[in-house]
Design a binder for these strands. Structure first.
Lengths: 192, 192
DNA sequence: GCAATCATGTAAAACGTTACATGATTCG
DNA sequence: CGAATCATGTAACGTTTTACATGATTGC
């Protein structure tokens, strides 16, 4: 799934400018895919030359001029083709947090604790946001959008619960290292 | 978190060749970070010139020669520096699956169903793997590793449960489109 | 007055994947 | 006999981020 296809997909929900496409990717989709202006604008230019989208320039008096993009019939076909091209494999997760936790035994206990507290805080806030969003008028949200938001909610809730119940595992790991390296007893091994 | 730091981290668990580093990233860490030979080998050469790792060449008779890498003291410091450089932000998830589900209303119902079945199947298998791995001798697994594996388990279990309970949302979305575009009877239901 | 929002775009740099090149050995 | 494992590395390619360039307007 590249920015190109993502643009087509967003445009299938309604015409938009490059700027608006980015904003729409900051909604519920933000958790599953992001894109920067530096990738969106070139993608739109390319899609226009390929005839998959049309571009209408709008002159605005009090704002910079706009370029409103719209899907063409060929664009709809291309989107369907790309979405059905293959059955998606497992999601790719890049978690610096989990890498850190995996090597918690190398880190100062205070740092590990701080990282965990921060993560809990962010997840609690996120969960609150999602719950508030869920109260939006139902007509605004398609079942598909509900599915995606609910999925995010379920995963974050599970993560939160897991961290709360198992943080002792990594906090103990960090503690052990600090005992080894910070003490001066003769039993200390491999200082350097 | 780049491949460079990841190599240092893996080497902190014991000396290894580039080949072995890749293998070790295919264990429990596989869900959170991957790396290809094309990124590992150049990273190791650079780390050697920077003095963060040492390289010992081993000649083997029945196998290609090996280069065993080991962390230096400077490497340990660099690893600690990079791990504590900043508190990690939210994980980046790239989910073609969820993008697809978000646009389920554009897709043929049979395809959506197939994608969901496949996902359930993969997650059930994964969960089974993780449960079997959890039976490994405890001395083999550090608390930190247990934490990471358990985290993956919790998230996958939550995803599985959520999909099972909410698939009707996206399956209904797909159904609606097909009624609009392909059927002639008003009551037709997703036969193929 | 300063920050944020609206609005588009380019260029350079970073990072990583994929494919290619090589080749013995071991297992089914 | 073919596939997988062990083992290293390069080069081309693609994608995306980051930084830069520009500039009016609106809200605090």
């Amino acid at each position: 799934m590249n920015v190109r296809t993502l643009c087509l997909a967003v445009l299938s929900l309604g015409d938009a400018t490059g700027y608006e496409i980015k904003k729409r990717l900051e909604g519920p989709l933000h958790y599953i895919h992001e894109a920067s202006f530096g990738s969106i604008y070139p993608a739109l230019t390319r899609l226009t030359t390929e005839g998959l989208v049309t571009c209408t320039e709008l002159n605005q008096t009090k704002r910079p001029d706009k370029k409103v993009y719209a899907l063409t019939q060929a664009g709809k076909v291309a989107l369907l083709d790309e979405l059905t091209a293959e059955i998606p494999e497992t999601d790719r997760v890049r978690s610096d947090f989990l890498v850190m936790m995996h090597f918690a035994h190398l880190l100062p206990p205070a740092f590990v604790e701080q990282v965990i507290e921060k993560r809990l805080e962010v997840y609690r806030a996120l969960l609150g946001d999602l719950d508030r969003e869920a109260l939006w008028p139902a007509r605004e949200r398609s079942p598909a959008t509900q599915f995606v938001c609910g999925y995010g909610r379920a995963v974050i809730a599970a993560s939160l619960k897991y961290i709360e119940e198992n943080r002792h595992l990594v906090e103990a790991a960090a503690l052990m290292t600090s005992e080894q390296t910070t003490t001066s007893q003769p039993t200390a091994t491999a200082a350097e």
